[in-house]
Nucleic acid binder design. Structure first.
Length: 724
DNA sequence: ATAGGGTTAG
């Protein structure tokens, strides 16, 4: 390509206007060569113009080229140093800005000025540690620039980025002059973590007669999104209308409003704003709509919008994936993630969190492991405690508590959050490792990590799964007395479970009576479970009746009640309950089990033989029966209440979904592999005995996750020690 | 030549 302005390079003429009019790096390179040809490369002013162009071009090549030119200058002036620092502050390697700054000081020719520090602080704000930022702050004071408004505003930004809002506020409050930018920066800093403080500061800003602009409103809507308070959101929206003459209502602002309404679940309002911009391809606004609809349960509308998007970025894909994940459609979430990978879109931390959460809920260990190894272990992600928590949660919920613990122990003490502790404690609880769970709980307390409702749910669960009655009672009492956390329904549920399993049914019932709220189905189900274990039919019937009142549409409750009656030989009553169920057209919820093989999830429904490998599975199933018979096993059909003969009952039990999944696992997994099964209901008593026997017969380790906990079957026994 | 913005999350 010929550059049009060649004739400008006459003797004594300056190439400056040309550099300014360059539209591309390529053109600028041509100008550069012309400068050299004309001997102007010793001309410091031309060179500094050229360096600026390349350094601020926004491209990596441009920046590298400017560095090359920079290194050829003997004694760069402050403007050139500043320009280089500014270039790196926006690049992929902001730490390079600090390196340059240090060498500038080391050379001792130039000292930093009021322009240097905002660029440097911008670089610091993009590093992974606040430490360099602190050092630069010291330099600012040493050089006497602490009252410069631009520098103060950059400092507020720096501290907010690292979540140190109190420090940001100290800088804000210590400024003699505060302008619109000071307020906007501070309000944006507050928006995500302290939304109420953001609104307060906005009020203060109005009192000080500082007119808000579109940036202010974007931050305010972001705060309202966090608050999910539609009242306040609407108020701010009205205020925006009043100020509209002075405010540029751009697409970013509209996106923030859409996001606010979507987060508040007001999809009609969101739709109104969205209709004005739906033809533009604002991916943020579309993504907010997608997530908004998904969260309202309108997953099909969400998917429809997602499909119609002109362009999808990571955020859009993540919105749809977490939409599936948050509405319980975990397989769909993973499927969409694979599609995203196929399209060559790189997931980010947030995508990983959504995908790992779906893996955890499904018990998809292989899938979760792949994500961990492929993206996170050799990955480019920052050390992010939310992501680490998601990984630990995935391993724990998928039955690999050892892997979870190993990662947990590798985390620095000061990075351990409540979420992290709660997650590992509930993982330990699910595995029946009550003592260890309590140890972690104590560690959490002594480390000064804040306890919350979730911490107590986790630790009380751990007590109940391990039969630690006295510890559980003490912890429950200390909850409010020591930690000031008022027990909620979930905590009472744990206690009912804890007392009930221990056979203290009267105590459990008393606790339900004394609770400050009406018991929900979870509580009655816990009591009923305990009644079944301890054979207390009378209280069991009370619990069942209550269950039918609270949730009359839930088939499982009818089954539980009729089981209970049948077990105490009240066959007529049992039949009556069955009849009631039929009359109300209530279906028994289907039992299913998952097993993962090579990253694919295979689902088995009870008595369903439609799997592609049905023949092999059936053969293995027969073989299992023969083996069981040879060790003298007799089916326990206590939990089958159908009015059928004994032999048939045995057949029904033997086709439970977990058995089919196990047969599939024995056919397909290599002998050293652990067979991992996830069930949507509690494992039945007979299957539990059978799995113990088969773990010995086939010398296999089998892990079953049911709705309550994990069962590790090995050499003829189960980790739950039959306490479940 | 300098400062501030929206979307995803356990």
């Amino acid at each position: 390509m010929k550059f049009p302005g060649k004739r400008l390079f006459l003797e004594n003429s300056s190439p400056l206007p040309l550099i300014e009019s360059c539209k591309s790096i390529k053109q600028a390179l041509q100008v550069h060569s012309q400068i050299i040809v004309n001997g102007l490369h010793r001309h410091i002013f031309s060179m500094s113009r050229l360096i600026s162009f390349f350094a601020l071009s926004g491209s990596k090549d441009g920046l590298n080229h400017s560095r090359l030119l920079f290194s050829q200058i003997d004694c760069p002036n402050l403007f050139i140093w500043n320009t280089m620092i500014r270039g790196y502050s926006r690049s992929d390697s902001p730490q390079e800005a600090l390196v340059l700054y240090m060498s500038m000081i080391a050379e001792g020719v130039e000292s930093p000025n009021n322009f240097t520090f905002p660029f440097l602080l911008n670089s610091c704000a993009r590093l992974s540690s606040l430490e360099p930022g602190h050092e630069i702050h010291c330099h600012i004071i040493k050089n006497g620039y602490q009252s410069d408004l631009f520098i103060r505003n950059s400092l507020i930004h720096l501290y907010s980025v690292f979540g140190d809002l109190s420090h940001a506020r100290v800088v804000f409050d210590g400024s003699f002059v505060r302008d619109l930018v000071s307020y906007n920066t501070m309000i944006s800093g507050y928006a995500q973590d302290l939304p109420r403080a953001a609104l307060c500061l906005f009020r203060e800003m109005l009192d000080m007669d500082i007119q808000p602009d579109e940036f202010t409103f974007v931050a305010l809507f972001s705060a309202c999104s966090v608050l999910t308070d539609p009242q306040i959101g609407k108020q701010i929206h009205n205020l925006l209308y009043k100020n509209l003459s002075s405010i540029d209502s751009n697409i970013l602002l509209k996106s923030a409003i859409i996001d606010m309404y979507a987060k508040c679940g007001l999809m009609k309002m969101a739709e109104q704003v969205f209709s004005a911009i739906r033809n533009s391809k604002s991916t943020a606004a579309w993504s907010s709509m997608v997530l908004g609809y998904a969260r309202c349960g309108e997953i099909e509308i969400a998917r429809h919008l997602f499909n119609k998007m002109a362009e999808r970025d990571v955020v859009s894909w993540t919105a749809m994936i977490s939409g599936y994940s948050q509405t319980g459609q975990y397989s769909e979430a993973l499927e969409l993630f694979v599609e995203m990978e196929d399209q060559g879109i790189k997931p980010d931390e947030v995508t990983m969190v959504a995908v790992l959460s779906a893996c955890a809920r499904l018990g998809a260990l292989e899938f979760g492991k792949r994500i961990h190894h492929q993206y996170i272990e050799n990955g480019s992600f920052d050390q992010n405690i939310i992501l680490t928590t998601a990984i630990i949660n995935m391993y724990a919920k998928c039955g690999s508590i050892d892997a979870a613990l190993k990662i947990f122990h590798g985390i620095q003490e000061n990075r351990k959050t409540s979420f992290l502790f709660n997650s590992i404690i509930s993982g330990l609880a699910q595995h029946g490792l009550g003592e260890t769970a309590i140890r972690f709980f104590r560690e959490m307390v002594s480390a000064g990590v804040k306890l919350d409702e979730g911490s107590f749910v986790a630790v009380l669960c751990a007590c109940s799964h391990s039969g630690l009655v006295e510890e559980g009672k003490k912890l429950f009492e200390s909850m409010f007395d020591v930690y000031g956390i008022r027990p909620q329904m979930e905590h009472y549920g744990c206690m009912v479970d804890l007392l009930g399993r221990d056979g203290r049914l009267e105590d459990a019932y008393d606790l339900i009576q004394k609770m400050p709220f009406e018991a929900n189905s979870v509580i009655w189900r816990a009591l009923l479970g305990a009644c079944r274990i301890h054979g207390n039919v009378k209280m069991g019937e009370i619990a069942s009746q209550k269950l039918l009142e609270v949730e009359p549409d839930h088939g499982a409750h009818y089954v539980l009640l009729s089981n209970m009656l049948a077990n105490s030989d009240q066959w007529d009553e049992a039949k009556r309950v069955r009849k009631l169920m039929e009359d109300r057209h209530i279906q028994k919820p289907p039992g299913w089990s998952y097993i993962e093989l090579n990253g694919t999830i295979h689902q088995f429904l009870a008595s369903n033989k439609s799997h592609p490998q049905a023949k092999e599975i059936e053969l293995m199933h027969k073989e299992m029966a023969v083996q069981l018979k040879s060790v003298g096993y007799v089916p326990n059909t206590a939990q089958v209440v159908f009015d059928i003969d004994e032999e048939e009952k045995g057949t029904v039990v033997s086709y439970h979904s977990e058995r089919l999944a196990l047969a599939f696992g024995l056919v397909n997994c290599s002998p050293k592999d652990v067979i991992r099964i996830v069930k949507n209901l509690r494992i039945c008593g007979d299957c539990h005995s059978v799995f113990k026997l088969l773990s010995e017969i086939y010398e296999r380790e089998i892990v079953v996750r049911d709705t309550i906990r994990f069962h590790h079957f090995k050499t003829g026994s189960c980790s739950c020690l039959d306490f479940w």
